[in-house]
Simulated scan of single mutants.
Amino acid sequence: MNIGGGDEYDARTRTSEGVPGAQDGARTTTRTRLPGSEGSNRPPTRPGRSLVTVVAVVVLLIAAIAFANRGDGDGGGGGGGAGSSDGKNDAAAQAQPTAPTGEKPVKTTGDTLPSGFPHTKQGAQSAAANYAVALVSADIVKTKERDAIIQQLFAPDRVTEVQGKMDKAYSPKLLARMGLDENGIAKKDTKYISRTAPVGTTVRTYKGDTAKLDVWCTGVFGNAGKKSTTPVTSDWFTLTVELTWTDGDWKIRKFSQKEGPAPVNGDNTASSADEIAAAVDKFGGFTYAR
């Protein structure tokens, strides 16, 4: 799903994941290693649901992200930032094994956003993966939570601009079409879900205090509920993140998103809305490390 901010997010907003309180209830933080190359099967869209409805929601999310990125003169074009490249950088950005190093990605624990990543290429990859989870989390649609995410993840000189773009992108009109009220809260008897899982990272460029990376992600988003008009579905996308080393940590200067690469859907039987909602409450999020 697209984050609602120009060089920022996808309005799926599954959306910035992995945010303070990105999931309802206490979140169990577990450290894991990113898969090296292969994708994983995802449940297909619920049989019997309107394909048109699902496509419409995705389009809304993409439009929100494009709107948020609009007017950013120094970035890659709207919606295609993740795909823009120059030959030299792409040639060097080849996949590398994600073998464990024994180094902890961060010291933070509990329901806080990961921070304090190492000033290394590996640290930049861990930061990008965790920031992707936050940028495409359920909290990104809520004004207060969204502001907290932006304050922590973005470079200080980018915060005000990003907040303005995100507020416009996540307008009451857009939220209503996503089945949420003006505060980003789901309707009665439904639960808004937006959970992102990075599948892998690659470094486009790394110059000590700056880094540009791609994060390949999959995730689920939508409203779980028997009367939901925007059922929970899955998608695949690539988030391009430009980081800068500021005040002892990696911070985002800009980001963009594009669809895919996406595998062929598997033959998994779609779960009920209640099962999906229960799974989000039961399973905590991860802290991702390179």
Rank of each mutant, 00 (worst) to 15 (best):
Asn89Met: 04
Thr246Gly: 00
Asp181Arg: 01
Thr45Gln: 13
Val232Ala: 07
Lys187Val: 11
Gly36Pro: 11
Gly164Ser: 12
Gly260Pro: 06
Pro47Thr: 00
Gly184Val: 09
Val57Arg: 03
Gly184Trp: 14
Phe286Gln: 13
Lys227Trp: 06
Glu38Gln: 04
Gln163Gly: 02
Pro198Ala: 07
Cys217Glu: 08
Phe67Ala: 07
Pro114Tyr: 05
Lys207Glu: 15
Val280Glu: 08
Ala169Phe: 03
Lys88Val: 12
Ser137Thr: 07
Gln152Asn: 02
Val54Ile: 09
Ile193Met: 05
Leu60Ile: 03
Thr190Ile: 12
Ile150Ser: 09
Leu135Val: 08
Asn268Met: 09
Glu182Gly: 01
Asp139Ile: 02
Thr30Gly: 12
Ala289Asn: 14
Tyr192Cys: 06
Thr160Met: 01
Lys104His: 12
Thr108Pro: 06
Asn69Cys: 03
Arg27Asp: 14
Leu51Trp: 11
Gln163Ala: 03
Val159Trp: 04
Phe117Gly: 00
Ala148Met: 01
Ala93Asp: 13
Thr244Asn: 10
Thr109Ile: 11
Thr30Phe: 07
Ala64Gly: 08
Ala148Ile: 04
Thr210Cys: 00
Gly73Met: 09
Thr120Tyr: 09
Asn2Met: 09
Gly260Arg: 05
Asn265Arg: 07
Ile185Asp: 14
Leu60Glu: 14
Lys251Val: 09
Ser16Val: 03
Lys107Cys: 02
Thr28Ser: 13
Thr202Gln: 15
Ala289Lys: 08
Ile140Pro: 04
Lys173Tyr: 03
Ser84Pro: 08
Thr196Arg: 00
Met178Arg: 04
Gln23Leu: 08
Ala64Met: 10
Glu103Thr: 05
Gly76Ser: 05
Arg177Asp: 15
Gly76Leu: 12
Glu17Gly: 06
Arg177Glu: 11
Gly81Trp: 15
Asn41Lys: 06
Ser272Arg: 06
Met1Glu: 14
Pro263Gln: 06
Gly73Pro: 05
Ala127Trp: 15
Val136Ser: 15
Val203Leu: 15
Asp235Ala: 08
Ala127Val: 10
Ser16Arg: 00
Lys165Tyr: 10
Phe117Pro: 03
Glu259Asp: 07
Asp90Cys: 02
Asp90Gly: 08
Ser194Trp: 00
Pro47Ala: 07
Thr196Tyr: 03
Lys212Leu: 13
Ala92Asn: 13
Ser126Ala: 13
Leu153Pro: 13
Trp250Val: 06
Arg33Asn: 10
Asp7Pro: 09
Ala66Ile: 01
Thr112Lys: 13
Ala68Ser: 10
Ile276Tyr: 10
Val232Trp: 05
Ala26Thr: 04
Glu38Asp: 08
Ala99Tyr: 04
Ile3Tyr: 08
Leu60Gln: 13
Ile140Lys: 02
Ala99Cys: 02
Phe221His: 11
Thr240Tyr: 05
Ser194Lys: 00
Pro97Val: 13
Thr32Tyr: 05
Ile193Cys: 11
Ala92Phe: 12
Asp7Trp: 11
Ala289Tyr: 09
Asp189Gln: 09
Ala224Cys: 08
Asp139Glu: 14
Arg12His: 14
Gly219Cys: 10
Pro114Phe: 01
Val133Ser: 02
Thr13Phe: 02
Lys107Glu: 14
Pro43Tyr: 04
Phe255His: 08
Gly77Val: 03
Phe221Lys: 05
Ala56Thr: 02
Pro47Tyr: 11
Val280Phe: 10
